[in-house]
């Protein structure tokens, strides 16, 4: 029974999959346009773009990490703890090891070592969470709730909750480099990560395995996937991304502290969901996540320009937008389902 391909159906199905991206794009353009119209002299100026590019990478990178874990059907609530712990280890090392008043070329190897320490910390933090989830079968939401407490606790414990400042000047100098006098290093790092992870998800074997595992862990096992290894590697990637975010936060604040970025956790989950990552696993794209980050950033930067409007309206709009998108998606999918039922009966 070799059937001929009806072009109408696949086209519709593809549009259905990318509907979310399209909606996000429309929303982005809308927010951008609104802000430009309301604040033509401030919003979307070069200086404003520059400041936006400094702000979003730290939470954006963590949002990508959380998105990856959500695609495999889990969640990583430990990203902020991992970021701060990594930064604190790196800061402690720099403060302790770099001699006072050393010339830049002597400091450079220490910086490289500090970055390596941070990345290794992130990797280990992620691996531990992955181990708890895959080997000990603790639900991801609880395991990472625990690791978040644990990592933040260690970070508070070894610093007595105080900020670790007095970092070598070179660190923040490098960290705040701007390429072509315009693109901050953190923005360039974000772009590299988004492209790299996006490619990994859509084109690599590991990415496909993550989607499949997130859809049905049992079937993945029967198809010969090594579930434990995929989960551990996913949380390791999330951990490394968190430590990169930690290093960026450290460069921005010129210090490391156990409670930096505390509200980022739920905000990142929100970004992931709004960006189209299925909270039940198996679906979602980095493009969507990036669009969601940009929408949030435009909103927040734009609102900053109204002196009489608190930046907390961002939370209101953000929460409101999420609920509206959900309601809209729901009503849309009810209709799509009805249509699909009709088609399948045909």
């Amino acid at each position: 029974m070799q059937s001929t391909v009806k072009p109408a159906i696949p086209a519709k199905a593809l549009a259905g999959r990318d509907q979310n991206l399209l909606r996000l794009l429309v929303m982005l353009v809308f927010v951008f346009g609104l802000m430009t119209v309301l604040r033509p002299n401030e919003f979307a100026t070069l200086a404003d773009f520059n400041s936006m590019m400094r702000q979003f990478p730290e939470y954006g990178i963590m949002a990508i990490g959380i998105s990856l874990t959500m695609i495999t059907g889990g969640i990583d609530l430990g990203v902020v703890g991992t970021a701060n712990l990594s930064a604190i280890f790196a800061a402690k090392f720099l403060i302790g090891a770099v001699p006072q008043g050393a010339p830049p070329e002597q400091v450079l190897p220490y910086l490289a070592a500090a970055v390596a320490i941070a990345l290794a910390t992130g990797l280990l933090c992620g691996a531990f969470a992955g181990l708890l989830i895959s080997r000990f079968r603790i639900p991801a939401i609880l395991a990472t709730l625990g690791t978040q407490q644990l990592y933040t606790g260690i970070a508070i414990g070894i610093t007595n909750g105080r900020p670790q400042s007095r970092l070598p000047l070179l660190y923040s100098t490098i960290g705040n480099t701007e390429f072509f006098g315009f693109f901050p290093l953190s923005f360039v790092i974000y772009c590299a990560i988004a492209v790299g992870i996006g490619l990994m998800l859509s084109r690599s074997r590991f990415g496909t395995c993550m989607y499949m595992l997130g859809t049905n862990a049992k079937a993945a096992r029967f198809a010969g996937l090594n579930n434990a290894s995929i989960i551990i590697r996913t949380y390791m990637v999330s951990g490394i991304l968190s430590s990169v975010a930690g290093l960026i936060m450290m460069a921005r604040a010129n210090s490391a502290k156990a409670d930096y970025g505390a509200p980022y956790t739920l905000q990142c989950v929100l970004i992931a969901v709004l960006g189209g990552i299925d909270p039940n696993g198996g679906f979602g794209k980095i493009t969507g996540v990036t669009l969601a980050i940009l929408i949030l950033q435009f909103l927040s930067s734009g609102l900053n320009m109204f002196n009489n409007i608190s930046n907390f309206y961002r939370d209101v709009i953000w929460g409101g937008v999420l609920i509206l998108v959900l309601v809209f998606n729901r009503l849309f999918s009810i209709r799509a389902e009805r249509r699909a039922v009709r088609r399948s009966m045909a």
Binding site: S310, Y313, D315, G319, L322, I323, L326
Partner: peptide
């Protein structure tokens, strides 16, 4: 997801 959204909404209303 709903409670994440409403949580953000309520906190924002309080502060905003």
């Amino acid at each position: 997801v709903v409670t994440l959204g409403t949580g953000s909404l309520f906190t924002g209303v309080m502060y905003g």
